[in-house]
């Protein structure tokens, strides 16, 4: 276990280094920041002085090392627009985005696994086929459009739910959370469901196909022949064995949802980092874009390690040390 963790951390650091270089090259080296930083009236000498002051006359790898040195000290530059350290801007908004992402996943799991089981156990019935067909529909629904239609229905026509913001938040360990107040939950409901529809469809389909493929297997027949109760067969023998692909997908989906949160946050004006990144892209606020990408990469890497650990708990055949 410890060996596994050390190895994974090493791998993660390599990935992080590669990504930081890609991000650096992509965001900083393409285009010329000088044009936006120096007034066009500046003389040739002033220009050259500014370029050497900023280190832009150095070769790319030298610039990259300077960038790395700053990153290791937690300095990712100051936002051109907000005039505050970029990393602070991102980290302030990270909890809101994580809350939304986790809420969407929880929704997808709680609704998806029972529906998937139901569909998988009754493939030929109307219910089963209905669930599977509608899961394809969820799969195809454009997230942003559904968000708009939800606002139209629940906020404008019915007036049940608020359209924007996080609502009242509670502070725990210095982090604001919406899910602990009624008002916050009302604000969280629509964005979370909106963001959760895609993973919901995936979980339904995976659970259903896993169930379908597992039922004819020998150990399921044995369980039935032993006269075990149906509930025990389904929840212990079946569910435990189909959980492995589902956990993988949930783990992979976490990063997908985190990325798609950008869309949902834009629609519901959820004050997370996704909204910030769209604004920053439109305003070419480079330090914020870099900070967002690096923070996202770190979150992905952590989630991937957690998923691997969860594997070994679910499937004793997976031995982490040997990887």
């Amino acid at each position: 276990m410890t060996l596994f963790l050390i190895r994974r951390l090493q791998q993660s650091i390599v990935v992080l280094l590669v990504m930081s270089f890609v991000v650096f090259a992509g965001v900083f080296a393409i285009g010329n920041p000088i044009d936006s930083l120096i007034s066009p009236e500046a003389t040739e000498q002033e220009r050259e002085k500014a370029i050497s002051q900023l280190g832009l006359d150095q070769p790319l790898y030298a610039q990259y090392f300077v960038f790395l040195k700053n990153v290791s000290r937690g300095e990712l530059g100051t936002s051109f627009v907000h005039n505050r350290p970029a990393i602070k801007l991102i980290l302030e908004r990270l909890p809101a985005t994580l809350e939304l992402t986790v809420a969407a996943l929880v929704f997808a799991i709680i609704v998806g696994i029972p529906l998937g089981l139901l569909a998988g156990l009754n493939t030929e019935s109307l219910i089963g086929r209905g669930i599977l067909s509608s899961s394809i529909l969820f799969f195809s629904l454009p997230t942003f459009w559904v968000g708009l239609m939800m606002i139209l229905l629940f906020s404008i026509n019915l007036g049940w739910l608020p359209t924007t913001g996080r609502g009242e938040t509670v502070e725990i360990w210095g982090i604001h959370a919406s899910f602990l107040t009624l008002d916050g939950l009302r604000h969280l409901a629509m964005p979370a469901v909106n963001l959760g529809l895609y993973p919901l469809a995936l979980i339904i389909r995976l659970t259903a196909s896993g169930t379908q493929e597992t039922i004819p297997l020998e150990y399921m027949k044995l369980a039935k022949a032993k006269g075990l109760r149906r509930r025990r067969i389904i929840f212990i023998h079946l569910l435990k064995n189909i959980m492995i692909p589902i956990v993988t997908v949930i783990g992979l989906q976490f990063s997908v949802i985190l990325a798609f949160a950008v869309v949902t946050e834009s629609i519901f004006a959820w004050p997370g980092m996704g909204r910030l990144i769209i604004d920053s892209i439109n305003l070419l606020d480079r330090p914020v874009i870099v900070a967002y990408l690096l923070v996202t990469v770190v979150v992905f890497l952590i989630v991937n390690i957690l998923v691997d650990i969860l594997y070994s708990i679910l499937d004793p055949r997976v031995r982490l040390g040997g990887m």
């Binding site: 990935v15 992509g26 990325a259 990144i277 892209i281 990469v297 992905f300 991937n304």
Partner: peptide, 17 residues
């Protein structure tokens, strides 16, 4: 490396650049 990131994010980064 490419698969490690959601396609939405990759596309977003490309267009940002």
């Amino acid at each position: 490396l490419f698969l490690g990131f959601p396609s939405f994010l990759i596309a977003l980064i490309c267009l940002a650049v």
